[in-house]
Design a protein around this nucleic acid. Structure first.
Lengths: 158, 158
DNA sequence: GTAAAGGGTACTGATCCGGTCCAATTTTGG
DNA sequence: CCAAAATTGGACCGGATCAGTACCCTTTAC
């Protein structure tokens, strides 16, 4: 249904919390309470993010998690990819398992890939810092229409 | 995983086939053979698209399906919504079931909604005609950066 | 009237996600 | 050295959703 998973949603949430107090070390139980999420869930997500290099973890009694990079440098796309793998709307991204049967299909597929890339880029342009910001100022994402007019996107026609 | 369902994928495929021969009436078995997909599946999808008004159907022995509108006027977003409902990356689009627990959450959510809208718009700008086109010429989707750095895809410009 | 087509619904199997739990490892502190 | 606290890793189960199928009905052409 074109949805990110709840884990990813939670992950972004937790990361924006971490971004709010850079340098500080947060423990999993602490974050679980703040976000009113079950501890095992939070723990699972933090583990995944740490494994992917988005979080630094400190073990032991005074341990905890903190961002591995400035919040401005971590994109939403990065987080999504860390938790649920490569971003792509369609199944056949680069695989092409068997025949698609139809010759026309291939043109459809290449167009899908274009859409995939576009969405990936849109998500790559949003940083954690922006997700945490109160969205006051301007629009975060501007896409589509650099020259709208409905179907017109292509009408650009070089 | 940010994926459309296979049914939607098949749906776009079938529709682009219909778009290639506007005016002609296609039967479900015929399309199933061409696309090398099981007939019951194709039939199910066509039914759904017809119910949503994207296809016109003719019953009876000489019946079949044809596009209910010019291919240029049918967007990919429309097809997705017809088969799998409203488009949105996140769960809490307009629902807000209970407390999100954290105050910061709300700002995150509003930013998500912005992203949702952006993606929806991107998909709304691609028509079936463009999906069927051999993608030779220009970029289909231009998003992100009307002012941002980064860029990649937009740099395509072939 | 019969055959061929769409229309609707219900059902089943498989996959994946959400969520939980437990054992192991590492570090602090006495 | 030992115990407590925290992360790490893996296994596990229930439920939701999707893919795919089957059945029965209505409509139309010949």
């Amino acid at each position: 249904m074109i949805r990110i998973t709840k884990q990813t949603d939670y992950g972004i949430l937790l990361l924006t919390r971490l971004a709010g107090d850079p340098g500080r070390l947060f423990t999993a139980p602490e974050l679980a309470i703040e976000a009113t999420l079950p501890l095992p869930m939070v723990s699972k997500i933090l583990k995944a993010l740490a494994r992917q290099g988005l979080l630094s973890s400190q073990r032991g009694v005074k341990g905890g998690y903190c961002l591995a990079a400035p919040a401005e440098e971590i994109s939403v796309a990065r987080v999504i990819e860390a938790i649920e793998g490569p971003i792509g709307i369609t199944e056949c991204i680069e695989e092409a398992p068997g025949e698609c049967g139809l010759a026309e299909v291939c043109s459809v597929r290449s167009n899908w890939n274009r859409i995939n890339r576009a969405i990936r880029e849109a998500l790559a342009q949003i940083s954690l810092a922006e997700m945490g910001a109160n969205s006051g100022s301007a629009q975060l994402v501007t896409l589509g229409n650099s020259g709208k007019g409905a179907g017109g996107a292509s009408a650009a026609t070089r």
